[in-house]
Design a protein around this nucleic acid. Structure first.
Length: 566
RNA sequence: GCCCCCAUCGUCUAGUGGCCUAGGACAUCAGAUUCUCAGUCUGAAUACACCGGUUCGAAUCCGGUUGGGGGUACCA
C-alpha cells in the first residue's frame, strides 16, 4: 500500500473527462520490428471493429522509435498484411509510399517540443546512469529484497558524466486509479511507479512518451491494446494529466497463447523446424544434411549452424521444413496466408478469440461482426490459439464461397507461394476449385493435392504395392486400360458408364477404382475419378496406365515393396 | 521477491442471483452415407478450481486459498 497519497486514491485521474460526445477514433500502433503477429492482428481487428461499430475512425500509426530494431521493410509488410486482412484505415501510412507523418520517426520535432514543455514545468529531468549502473542498482535492490524504483528524490543518483543523459519524467506519488474498458477498476499504489525514461540517450522518445503525445495529437478516444500494457497505463495517464490533456479511455485485451499455454513466438517456428530436422536425421542417418543442403541450395555449414542454434533465421527454418515436408506452426499473419487460410476466416476466428457475439453464433460476416461488436462482450481471460478450430472454420468459408471468390483467394495465395497451381489456366482452375471445394479446408491442400494434374505424380510406394502390384491389381489394370482405350470421346457421357464398369470389377465393389486412382494420382486419395480423369485428359491417363503395365511386365511377381516410377 | 490482472467441458465460449439436473462450436469417440478422401447426418463422453460467507435460492455477489498470466528496460 501507498504511503503519502493514499487518501487521494483515485482522485486525480478518474476525474479526467471522457470523450462521450466525440467521434470515436481508435488506432493500431505496431512497431515495425518484424512481421505482423496474429496477436497484433487481433488487436488491430478489435480496434477496427470498435471504430466501425461506432461509426468512428480507425487510425494506423507506425511506432518506429526503436532505431535499432525497426525497419521500413517490416513496416511495409505489416501494411500489406493488414490490407490482406481487409482492415482498412482512415488515416495512416500509404502502402508503397515511404514514410509520412504516421511514422513516429517523422515526428521528432513534435516530441522535442513537448519534452521541452515538461522540462519547463520541472517535471522532466536528466539522468546520467549508464545501463550498466542501472543494472547494478537493480541487482543490489534485489539482493536486499526490496523493489527498485528509480525516483528523482532517491539517494545515490549519478552525477553528470561522459554519457549522454536520458530524460526522465517525474511521476506523481499519488495512487492512481482508472476504469479499464474491459477489466474495470485498476488501482496502483503511488510508490509502485518509476520515473520513466521519456527520451533515450539517442535523442529518440521512448514508447511511453511518443504514444501519449501521438494519441493526443491524433485525437484518439479509445485505446484498445494488449494486456501487457496494463501497468503502463497509469504512467501514460500521469503524462496526460501533466500536459492537461483529456485522456483516451483504455481497454486491455487478454493475451493469446499457444494451445499448450506457451507464448506464440516466431521462435516457435525455428524450434519446430529443428525438432523435425532432428527426427529426420535420426531416421535416415548419415550424410543427409549434405543431401538436404543440395536440395535447399544451402551450404551444409548453414544447416549445421542452424541446428546448433547459432542462428534463428525464420526464413531458413521455413525452407528446410519445406524440404523435408514438415509443417511449421503459423505465427505471423503471412504464415496463415501462405498456409492457405482465407482472410475472412482468419478474421472471424480472431474475432471470436476473446470476444463473443453472445448466443450460439460462430460464423459471422464482417458486417455482422461490426453490428454485434461491443466492448462489454470482450472477455477477461487469456485465450489459446486452437489451429484445429481455425482449420475447420476455414473449411466452412471455403465451402460457403463461390468459385469466383475462391479464384480471387487463390490469386492472393499465389502471390506469396509457389505451387504448380499458379500455372493453371482459368478453365483448369475452375474445375480444380469445383473438385476440391468440398474436400479442402485450406488452399494449401488444394495446391498440394492437385500437383498430379500438372506433373507426374510422386508415387506412394505403399499404395502402389497394395493397389497396383498386388493381385488382382495387374489384371484389373489391364482391363481398365482396354476399357478406357475404347472410349470414343473423352467426355462425361462416354466416361461415366466405363467408370461404372470399373467400379464393378473384382469381388469388392470399388476396389478397382483404387487401382486406377493410385496409377493416375500417385496415391490412395484423390477427388472422384470421373472428374479426375476428365480434367487429367486421355493422354496423361493412358500414359500413366501404360507405364505401370510396362513396369509390371518387367517385374512380374508381386511381393511387398514399392515401385519407382516417378 | 514485489505490483497488477484473471479463473465454466481438452480448446474457444454462452451465462450478468431462480429459465442451469449448465447451452453452442472445435477437437475426440461411435454409427450412417460412400469409388478413396473429404463432406453431410445421428449419437456419446467431457466443465462451473478449492474453502468459507451473503441469500429463501449462487456458475453468477463478497472474502480467502490455490492455480495461471502480465509487469517490474534507454523494447514496444
Amino acid at each position: 500500500m501507498a504511503g503519502a497519497g493514499a487518501h487521494q486514491r483515485g482522485q486525480i485521474l478518474s476525474a479526467i473527462s471522457t470523450h462521450a460526445t466525440m467521434l470515436v477514433r481508435t488506432r493500431f500502433a505496431p512497431s515495425p520490428t518484424g512481421f505482423l503477429h496474429v496477436g497484433g492482428a487481433r488487436t488491430a481487428l478489435f480496434n477496427w471493429l470498435f471504430a466501425r461499430q461506432q461509426g468512428g475512425q480507425f487510425i494506423l500509426r507506425i511506432e518506429d522509435t526503436d532505431q535499432v530494431r525497426s525497419t521500413e521493410q517490416s513496416a511495409a509488410g505489416i501494411l500489406q498484411d493488414l490490407r490482406w486482412l481487409g482492415l482498412d484505415w482512415d488515416a495512416g501510412p500509404v502502402v508503397g509510399q515511404g514514410k509520412n507523418e504516421y511514422f513516429q520517426s517523422m515526428r521528432l520535432e513534435l516530441y522535442r517540443q513537448h519534452l521541452q514543455e515538461l522540462i519547463r514545468q520541472g517535471r522532466a529531468y536528466e539522468a546520467y546512469e549508464t545501463p550498466e549502473q542501472l543494472a547494478a542498482m537493480r541487482a543490489e535492490a534485489e539482493k536486499q529484497k526490496r523493489p527498485f524504483r528509480y525516483r528523482r528524490q532517491m539517494a545515490g543518483r549519478a552525477a553528470p558524466g561522459a554519457a549522454q543523459p536520458v530524460l526522465r519524467f517525474e511521476m506523481p506519488w499519488q495512487d492512481l486509479h482508472f476504469k479499464d474498458l474491459i477489466l474495470g477498476d485498476i488501482r496502483v499504489a503511488g510508490d509502485e511507479h518509476d520515473d520513466i525514461v521519456i527520451r533515450k540517450s539517442d535523442g529518440f522518445p521512448t514508447y511511453h512518451f511518443a504514444v501519449v503525445v501521438d494519441d493526443h495529437a491524433m485525437g484518439i478516444t479509445h485505446v484498445l491494446r494488449a494486456q501487457e500494457h496494463l501497468m503502463n497505463t497509469p504512467k501514460h495517464l500521469a503524462l496526460y494529466a501533466t500536459f492537461g490533456w483529456p485522456a483516451p479511455q483504455h481497454g486491455h485485451l487478454p493475451l493469446v497463447f499457444n494451445l499448450d499455454g506457451s507464448k506464440m513466438s516466431k521462435r516457435d517456428r525455428t524450434k519446430a523446424a529443428r525438432a523435425a530436422l532432428q527426427a529426420y536425421a535420426r531416421q535416415e542417418q548419415d550424410a543427409l544434411f549434405e543431401k538436404l543442403a543440395r536440395r535447399a541450395a544451402l551450404s551444409p555449414a548453414t544447416i549445421r549452424a542452424f541446428m546448433a542454434r547459432q542462428n534463428d533465421d525464420a526464413a531458413l527454418a521455413s525452407k528446410l521444413a519445406a524440404c523435408i515436408g514438415c509443417e511449421l506452426p503459423e505465427i505471423d499473419v503471412q504464415d496463415f496466408r501462405r498456409s492457405g487460410y482465407l482472410a475472412e476466416a482468419l478474421v472471424n476466428f480472431l474475432a471470436l478469440l476473446g470476444w463473443s457475439p453472445g448466443g450460439n453464433r460462430e460464423i459471422l460476416s464482417r458486417r455482422e461482426m461490426i453490428e454485434a461488436f461491443s466492448l462489454e462482450q470482450i472477455g477477461r481471460t487469456s485465450g489459446r490459439f486452437d489451429r484445429k478450430k481455425l482449420h475447420w472454420m476455414n473449411g466452412e468459408y471455403i465451402r460457403a464461397s463461390s468459385i469466383e471468390q475462391l479464384g480471387a483467394a487463390v490469386d492472393r495465395f499465389n502471390e506469396v507461394t509457389d505451387y504448380p497451381l499458379q500455372h493453371a489456366d482459368a478453365d483448369t482452375r475452375r474445375q480444380l476449385l469445383a473438385m476440391y471445394q468440398p474436400r479442402m479446408a485450406t488452399l494449401v491442400e488444394l495446391a498440394r493435392n492437385s500437383v498430379f494434374f500438372f506433373q507426374e505424380p510422386v508415387y506412394d510406394a505403399a499404395a502402389v504395392a497394395q493397389h497396383v502390384l498386388q493381385e488382382p491389381g495387374p489384371v484389373v489394370l489391364r482391363e481398365i486400360e482396354t476399357r478406357l482405350k475404347a472410349v470414343p470421346r473423352w467426355d462425361r457421357e462416354n466416361l461415366a458408364p466405363v467408370l461404372e464398369h470399373i467400379l464393378a470389377l473384382g469381388q469388392k465393389r470399388g476396389a478397382a477404382a483404387q487401382t486406377l486412382r493410385v496409377v493416375v494420382s500417385g496415391g490412395a486419395v484423390s477427388p472422384p475419378l470421373l472428374e479426375t480423369l476428365l480434367l487429367l485428359g486421355r493422354d496423361k491417363t493412358l500414359g500413366r496406365i501404360a507405364r505401370h503395365l510396362a513396369a509390371i511386365r518387367r517385374e512380374p511377381p508381386v511381393p511387398a515393396h514399392g515401385s519407382d516410377l516417378s
